[in-house]
Amino acid sequence: MRSPVALRIVVVAGFLFLYAPILSLVIYSFNESRLVTVWSGFSLKWYGELLSDPQIIGAAWISLKVAFLSASIATVLGTLAALVLVRGGRGRAVLGGLVTAPLVMPEVIIGLSLLLLFVAMEGLIGWPGGRGLLTIVIAHATFGAAFATVVIEARMVTLDRAVEDAAQDLGAGPLRVFFDVTLPALAPALVSAWLLAFTLSLDDVVIASFVAGPGSSTLPMVIFSKVRLGVSPEVNALATLVIVLVSCLVLIAAWVSARQRVPEA
């Protein structure tokens, strides 16, 4: 059935709405003028300024470390949570609720409550020893785990249990079955879950602002304080780099999962 013209117009307009702002960020990152939206000629100078700004480079380094660590923890947690949810361990309903809530809970609440926990624990047992990289990693791993669970769960429900049963019948122990059969079959979902947790961590400004300590400002925190004062061509250049990087990662992920699908078909 052909879709009516009105429907097509809505779809085209919808995608324009989604992509025009991103496109305008990229275009104006090459603008000579400091006014960002007044075009005065092509220039790469903001990329130069960006890469020689020690505050941004330092914050980017912190953010990458936090994102790497928290995405890795989130993927492990998400795999275990998905196992419980799909394979019907005890407390399935409780865990389902525990996973859904962080997905939608406003960030200001998650940030504030985690900060209060860290301060209370500090008073009780002297851990985690001040706020900084560790507290941001814990916070990001927690909400990253919720997103990772959703991605891994979606893949796990499509897995054929018969293959695992066959491995078990052939004498493989439960750990061997998990690492040699289940995990490889889950690989594309694990990659997407890790990438999703990584980009969410790299993007979070609210939760990090609550749980970060002095000297552990992440990249989004630095960007946020810059753009609150208005537009900044440096931020446009940074946005363009992020968009290019993310597009590459997503294309790689899509390519990996497309290749994975072929042998099954």
Binding site: Y19, I22, Y28, L195, P220, V231, V235, N236, A239, V242
Partner: peptide, 16 residues
């Protein structure tokens, strides 16, 4: 777009 930075996508609207 969901994968590209939420913060930067909101920022884009200031310029627009």
């Amino acid at each position: 777009p969901f994968w590209t930075s939420f913060l930067l996508r909101v920022y884009a609207w200031i310029g627009i």
